[in-house]
Design a protein around this nucleic acid. Structure first.
Lengths: 231, 231
DNA sequence: TGTCCATCTCTTGTATACAGAGATGGGGGC
DNA sequence: GCCCCCATCTCTGTATACAAGAGATGGACA
């Protein structure tokens, strides 16, 4: 495999090997190269990154605490499989958290931030019209991050990021839903409008609705796929 | 010091040394034996618990990800000192999260859970009247945990627990505020009433108010103490 | 006397070695 | 033929040894 860690382009000023490994594995999970349920063997990871098990263990521990990996003492670590009911609970929280971000954002975003959000939104419109799914997905993420940052509340952002990271491997599926991209854009539209108008409660409601709709699509998706545990 | 880990009474079925150390340090921080800003030296901790540095490092990493400890590569770990503005932000989130818990709890608590909550509340009343501050503080924690559990949403509970843990070392101060215990009880009263009545919005509002008041007391406390960083 | 640089020490980061808990597979008993 | 038990083996948890960076300290020079 030879994934020499040098590949990591993040500013690794002072970063340790463990951090680099964590980022690499995180990315693997995020992009679906490591599916939920996959076992993380310390020895083979050590070989893959050409380092010892010690930093690998540290990286895994960090992932465990981020919720991306599950670990039982003496039984190793696996990429966290998400039980359906738990996933629904997470979306439930996510909708409230993102709603909260939007509410704060409506009150606190500077004029510059608002304009940047508007530009992002316009960009996503272009991607939607061009039917560029991957690009839309990427901008969509930036959009949500912009709103989260607009809350000007760091702990809240951390919570939102954490939930987003844990749901990301699944979130992607929904874009296959008929008309989802278009609907998603329309929902974003409501959010942007409310935030630009500085209307906290409208922003809250719009964002909450946007995320809640995703729950419905998921449960639908899962009920078609069957099975209560998504791998 | 000789803190032989055996002291930990938690069901350590399968728990590792690292877990035990984490719990011990967590408790130290929680109870104020380790003040924010204190340096966590791996070697001395290893000696204190009579184990090697490896599990100590793992424990510290876990604490870092819980937010209780801060760590910079090659510069060691310190018990996280909280900047004032960040603490206020955390309380801001906490009030929403706990409000959310209360809202869900009002809808979802079983009759047994409601009665248990009522009993807890009655116990705290006794402690208030007997002026037993420490006991009141302990029951207060249980009260909040009961409401969180009543939300029947595990990710939400985790978030709430995380915030609570990070704020706990500071939360304690407020009980010195004149009449705080009595007021706190009255606020709890509103929460209990709303939950028992199954009124989600009232429960949300009452809990949110309860936690918000704590923010005011904190900012007051801090403005008296001076300094933007509380050690 | 103050400042800057080199060295030294102390602490953290990483590697490796060892020990023990679970998993696994084969053999024996029913 | 099937199931249970035990030996073995693999992988995790812990200990210890080594490397390397950051800060401290002391001396030399301005």
């Amino acid at each position: 495999m030879s994934d020499r860690i040098a590949a990591s382009k993040t500013a690794d000023k002072g970063a340790t090997r463990a951090d680099e490994v964590r980022l690499a594995i995180e990315e693997d999970i995020f992009l679906g190269r490591l599916r939920p349920g996959t076992r993380l063997d310390e020895e083979s990871l050590a070989q893959r990154f050409s380092i010892s098990r010690t930093p690998i263990r540290e990286a895994i521990l960090q992932l465990v605490h981020a919720g991306l990996v599950e670990k039982q003492p003496r039984q190793g670590a696996v990429v966290a499989p998400l039980k359906l009911h738990r996933m629904v609970q997470m979306f439930e929280v996510m909708s409230e958290i993102e709603g909260l971000c939007a509410r704060f954002a409506a009150r606190r975003m500077s004029e510059e931030e608002k304009q940047a959000l508007k530009r992002l939104h316009d960009t996503s419109k272009a991607h939607m019209e061009a039917r560029e799914l991957d690009a839309y997905y990427a901008v969509n993420r930036s959009f949500h991050e912009a709103v989260q940052a607009g809350s000007h509340n760091e702990p809240l952002q951390e919570i939102a990021r954490g939930l987003f990271a844990r749901l990301a491997p699944y979130r992607r599926y929904q874009l296959n839903h008929p008309n989802r991209v278009h609907d998603s854009f329309t929902e974003h539209d409501d959010v942007v409008e409310a935030i630009l108008a500085g209307d906290p409660e409208a922003a809250y409601a719009a964002m909450r609705r946007h995320v809640t709709i995703q729950i419905d699509i998921f449960t639908e998706f899962v009920s078609i796929m069957g099975g209560s545990e998504i791998q």
